[in-house]
């Protein structure tokens, strides 16, 4: 599964990165985010585009798994 690390980027960039990565990897994608705003935005974007989003907290970051 493709993994993108958006740590250090502020919204909307993590969402744009997710959008682009989903074009290459439309079935499943793991997105690492490091702030609450991006976590919520990527989750909302994933759900709005028809993915099931699983959020896991890991230290000061979150791992979001988007799957159909």
């Amino acid at each position: 599964m493709k993994i993108i690390d958006t740590s250090g980027f502020s919204c909307p960039e993590p969402v744009i990165m997710t959008k682009k990565a989903l074009k290459d990897s439309p079935d499943a994608l793991t997105v690492i985010v490091d702030n609450v705003a991006s976590r919520e935005n990527v989750k909302r974007f994933g759900e709005a585009t028809g993915y099931k989003v699983d959020v896991k907290e890991e230290g000061s970051k979150w791992t979001l798994v988007l799957a159909r």
Partner: peptide
């Protein structure tokens, strides 16, 4: 709430999100 005046319209343009 992460209120942002620019972000509202930006999200509509970029991802059709009206939140």
């Amino acid at each position: 709430s992460r209120l942002c005046f620019a972000g509202g319209m930006r999200d509509i343009f970029l991802m059709r999100d009206t939140t």
